[in-house]
């Protein structure tokens, strides 16, 4: 997949400059959008291969509780080390769960992921002497090389932005690798993958591990951004948010997930202001609309607009 450089540069310029001129609550929302985007990338990876996961919060919660335990047991809040730690715990979790998951596709893949995340949720809820139960663990303020990095401020925002940029690059490289193309091919024709000399299980397993690592990183940033980790991080509603964003943004282009994440945060903010009791109804309704009428999500809308305006200079921007 070829990186769409024009969109990339416009989006990064926006993400770097916009926070300087908007009120601070928008900075907080953009931070949330960025770390959610990292987790959604994992869900979008699966969707490109025609697989749905209703349990990606499993890895998000792995990341948040990595921070939770690190703070609770060691009082350690150094983001520069905790972000790789979160990636590692996410990878390890995915390496174990993936052993089972690599055997399944379609309905089973979706439901088993949901099952695993609900098991983690139940464990986090019930082992309250370790996890604090429903109260969760308060993680306080992150540090960066010893300096405090309070949530909702510019330093934390730009730190998250840098991590998100690195992750985007990693995922681009993955999608451009043979493995990335093979995973995409699972949706079309599995047997041809094996004819090409690649094991389908290996492709799913490695993609699963990558997605797990992304979830872990996202969890670490999420924990510090919210300042609190709770069992709900692993709950199916959290997974539903990830799936919603992947679908809203459209999973054909990576940056679709970013558009989706930003749009989602604003929808959530305004929806909880105007329809506080109909949040899931709003999500479900928008999802139904996208599935029925705009299956490519925001990304496809952007692409059709872009090709309409610049059909003279370049062809389709499909990757």
């Amino acid at each position: 997949m070829r990186p769409n450089l024009r969109v990339l540069s416009i989006l990064s310029a926006l993400l770097i400059l916009v926070p300087l001129v908007v009120p601070s609550w928008v900075v907080f929302i953009l931070t949330k959008a960025l770390f959610t985007f990292i987790a959604v990338l994992g869900v979008a990876l699966f969707l490109r291969g025609g697989q749905v996961t209703f349990g990606h919060a499993l890895f998000f919660a792995t990341g948040t509780y990595t921070v939770g335990f690190s703070v609770k047991w060691f009082g350690f809040r150094e983001t520069l080390l905790l972000v790789p730690m979160g990636a590692l715990t996410g990878l390890i979790m995915a390496a174990f769960v993936g052993l089972i998951m690599a055997r399944y596709r379609g309905v089973f893949f979706a439901m088993l992921n949901l099952a695993f995340s609900m098991i983690l949720y139940a464990i986090l809820l019930k082992l309250y002497w370790v996890t604090g139960g429903t109260d969760g663990i308060s993680v306080g303020t992150a540090t960066f090389l010893g300096f405090p990095l309070p949530a909702g401020t510019y330093p934390f925002y730009y730190f998250t932005l840098v991590i998100a940029g690195l992750i985007t690059y990693v995922v681009y490289r993955f999608l451009a690798s043979p493995l990335g193309y093979f995973f995409r091919a699972i949706a079309d024709n599995e047997i041809r993958i094996e004819y090409s000399g690649e094991s389908v299980r290996r492709v799913i397993y490695l993609t699963y591990i990558l997605a797990g690592g992304l979830g872990g990183v996202s969890g670490v940033l999420g924990a510090f951004s919210v300042g609190h980790v709770v069992p709900e991080d692993a709950y199916w509603v959290q997974s539903a948010h990830f799936v919603f964003i992947a679908l809203l943004g459209g999973f054909e282009g990576i940056l679709g997930s970013l558009m989706g994440a930003v749009a989602f945060e604003f929808i959530q903010t305004y929806s909880s202001k105007y329809f506080p009791y109909a949040w899931q109804l709003t999500l479900g309704g928008i999802m139904l609309f996208i599935i029925l009428f705009r299956p490519g999500g925001l990304w496809a809308i952007y692409e059709s607009l872009a090709s309409r305006f610049s059909s003279k200079t370049e062809g389709s921007t499909h990757g």
Binding site: Q51, A110, A187, A240, L281, G284, M287, P295
Partner: peptide
């Protein structure tokens, strides 16, 4: 809803019934 997606990819069908679940959950609360 479902009538429009018979024969679609599995992930589309899963996502659709999932979004109906979200809608029904809130319908109960409302």
């Amino acid at each position: 809803c479902l009538r429009r997606i018979y024969g679609s990819d599995i992930h589309i069908q899963l996502l659709m019934t999932f979004s109906i679940l979200l809608i029904l959950e809130d319908a109960m609360k409302l």
